[in-house]
């Protein structure tokens, strides 16, 4: 069993960290994991994406064309990745930053106003956590407790005081379910 997740958005939206959390949590659960960024000569505000794979066996390619799930945090990411979700796969979108609906009908779509939820919780930078919570509630790849634990261990020291808020963001996201 192998599950691939691409997280895509603007640099600064926590795209890379979101993917790393999946990898750390997978590692703690005894799984094989890879995390690979689409690195480039980029900076804050540019596009960013990463692929995280969690698997029961040795992982072959670290990149896949048709992943099981994609989190699109903005419009350019939706445009780029909508067609790449594996048929039957899961597409989680940050509807707070979208001005069009998702077109595909052969996949499971979850529209989460994650930016607004994060802002309501007190910090827009937690948008990635809301979306990650929504992903995990709809894709049984890892238990929420593994992500919470990974967050506890790997959130930088200077942000540790934000831990309860981040847990809250994950749980708010997890309330969203695909119809």
């Amino acid at each position: 069993m192998q599950t691939e997740v691409i997280i895509a958005g603007f640099g600064g939206q926590g795209v890379l960290f979101g993917g790393q959390l999946l990898a750390y949590a997978g590692l703690d659960e005894g799984k094989h994991v890879t995390w690979i960024p689409a690195y480039g000569p980029e900076m804050r505000g540019g596009t960013a994406n990463c692929t995280a794979i969690v698997s029961d066996e040795e992982i072959g390619s670290p990149l896949v064309r048709y992943p099981a799930a994609i989190i699109a945090m903005n419009r350019p990411s939706l445009d780029k990745y909508e067609n790449q979700v594996k048929p039957g796969g899961l597409l989680v979108v940050n509807s707070s930053m979208l001005d069009r609906p998702v077109k595909r009908t052969d996949i499971r779509v979850l529209e989460v106003d994650a930016g607004d939820v994060a802002e309501r919780l007190g910090d827009k930078r937690m948008t990635n956590m809301v979306l990650l919570g929504a992903l995990l509630a709809n894709l049984p790849v890892l238990p929420m407790s593994a992500i919470e634990n990974a967050l506890k261990v790997h959130l930088p020291e200077r942000h540790q005081r934000l831990l309860p808020k981040n847990f809250e963001a994950l749980r708010e996201g997890a309330k969203y379910k695909v119809n």
Binding site: H32, V33, T34, W35, I36, Y39, P62
Partner: peptide, 10 residues
């Protein structure tokens, strides 16, 4: 290569 260098794994 850049892929193996940039990738994170257990």
């Amino acid at each position: 290569d850049g892929s193996i260098g940039q990738m994170m794994e257990a």
